[in-house]
Design a protein around this nucleic acid. Structure first.
Lengths: 192, 192, 192, 192
DNA sequence: AACTAATCGAGACGGTACGTCGTGTCTTACA
DNA sequence: TGTAAGACACGACGTACCGTCTCGATTAGTT
């Protein structure tokens, strides 16, 4: 009932992360500053520095913490359909605002900040990849894939082109494109 | 006989780009500053700003201008062997110092600078991809690939996993890995 | 008849000085720059630096050259009336736009530029003072002033308060104020 | 017991002003830069800009703050002697290093910076003039001067020639010259 | 009338300083 | 004790002019 006292701990943490996302979506990663987050959140810079080591670390937390429970992917028995659904929803998250641009910026930051690269992998990339690999493994165990099917390689061939399009050519990422890749992967494009 | 016109100008341009590469390799992209480049090159900041719009634009030019004539790739008639050679040499350039880390930083910058993204695509990514596509087209024309072989899709499936490894998982990029992908692409990994 | 060729010598000199006055009156001394004068006059900076050593020297010339022939002061035989007329017209020049503010700025510059101080004295202050002293001398020779009348001191007592008001208190300089000083000087304000 | 509040602040303020005076005396007003003051004082430029709006404002404070309590002038009953003493000591301050040249530069700056002009008047010129006027008023009240004696006019006639000599002719300002003016003022230099 | 030398405009260049921004650390006072 | 507020040193930003310089093009004198 006290009138806006100094909230503490988790309270402040959440408020700061919320503000970070807001600001990040408004002005973009490049112009985002800890200074501005502190000002808008009514927090002192010290309070932010006490919790996060850098702008990127703050943003990473801000992006992931609401979602961290993560999406569960289906296992309908149809490996192709399940994979398609899985990747479609990953693409939807990565390619669309509000998260898409900030995610891309974070991957950008990972190119000169090994800590961010590691955290990003541990907390987002790897879990995501693990789900794909797990679904593939089930399929292999059920005899839907050959016994020597390379799970990691398949995952890389499915993910790589998506990130290539997302980060390098920066053209729109469509479900149709995902389907093309899935088909090509399984059908092969071999010489006659 | 050829007396380069604007001798003064081109001279400075080259000196600045050379210094940028040196400094970039010494201290990394994040710590690289136009201030420092100017100081080390004995140039004024204005002279740099007159030519380049940003640190990233300067680095892009500095990285590409020495190589711009570009590598020529072989056409021995054996599409698999030629592709393998082509991609191996691209990987060697991208993954190894001195260019690798700076290239990665530049791709990072492209995530929040559309101008850099465009320039990077036009001057490096697209030409590189074009060479791969061109070699594939020749093979298709010679009947080594099926008439409905999707050239761009193949290129994406070959490049994507490499960039994924380079930018996301940041694990070492080996020739063996390239070969795995090539094999998988042509053989297919389809369900039984 | 040729269409705007590169004019030379005196032509350019005059154009530059005219532009200097214009610009100076528009934006004030502080913001006046040789760069801007060159641009507006369609002259190269070199052409200006060839003729003048500094912004202040350029402005001094620009202010004085149109007037240099100078005002001639009357000798009606009435020393009080003549002095009054003389000083009134000096005050009108000094205190009013467009010349007043630029003159003041120039005197300001003379406080840290001995060359300007010297030039200002030689070309404006001293000639002006000489005319006053000359008129006083005539009056003394004609017996209107006592034989031991100190001409320079009188000149200083007449001029000083005007410059004090102009430069220090920066309150408006009126003819009435001039008259007060003239009266006080000749009448004395002595103790009873 | 008096624990200066804002200890950190006042500390820096004083250090910066001290450095400003030092540097100003060493290299002169024209070459004095906020950059250099910051460097020598071990302060950041922000810290200076937080307190002062310009180089001139900083110098004004630096010059005045040590003296602000100001000199007290004598009242021996002899108006001529007291005025003489008062003006002699003002002249000594204004004309001599270390303060003289910097004061002159500041008056110069006041010619194109109204804020400085106002501050200079309020904090130095006016208080100084007030003391002279006050002493004259006492003399008038005591009947040593005629009842219609114009105090402000007298002050202007005493001060003006000094500033004229200081700022315009820039010849040495001697006590003897002051005495000449005092004598002339009270005796008058009138026509026969 | 052609040639030479001076002069011009344009503007690149190395500098210096500007005034601003954000960093990460710190101190102070409050709750 | 944890906090908001914000001072602080630092480093870099991007800009403005400085005074010097090179570059062709133009224009006078000289031949």
């Amino acid at each position: 009932m006290t009138d806006t006292p100094h909230r503490r701990g988790a309270d402040r943490t959440e408020a700061i992360m919320r503000t970070t996302l807001e600001l990040g979506q408004e002005i973009g990663y490049a112009k985002l500053s800890i200074e501005a987050v502190a000002a808008r959140a009514g927090a002192s810079k010290q309070t932010i520095y006490r919790r996060w080591a850098s702008k990127a670390a703050l943003l990473l937390d801000s992006l992931l913490s609401p979602n961290e429970p993560g999406l569960d992917y289906p296992d309908t028995g149809d490996i192709m359909a399940d994979l398609r659904a899985q990747i479609h929803s990953a693409v939807d998250l990565l390619a669309e605002p509000p998260f898409g641009p900030l995610f891309r910026a974070l991957i950008g930051e990972a190119q000169h900040d090994p800590q961010i690269a590691a955290a990003l992998n541990e907390r987002f990339i790897a879990p995501q990849a693990d789900k794909t690999v797990a679904r593939l493994r089930t399929a292999r165990e059920q005899g839907q894939l050959s016994p020597d099917f390379d799970l990691d390689l398949a995952m890389a061939i499915l993910s790589g082109p998506l990130y290539f399009q997302l980060l390098i050519t920066q053209e729109p990422l469509t479900h149709a494109y995902v389907d093309q890749i899935l088909d090509a992967l399984f059908a092969g494009m071999g010489p006659r």
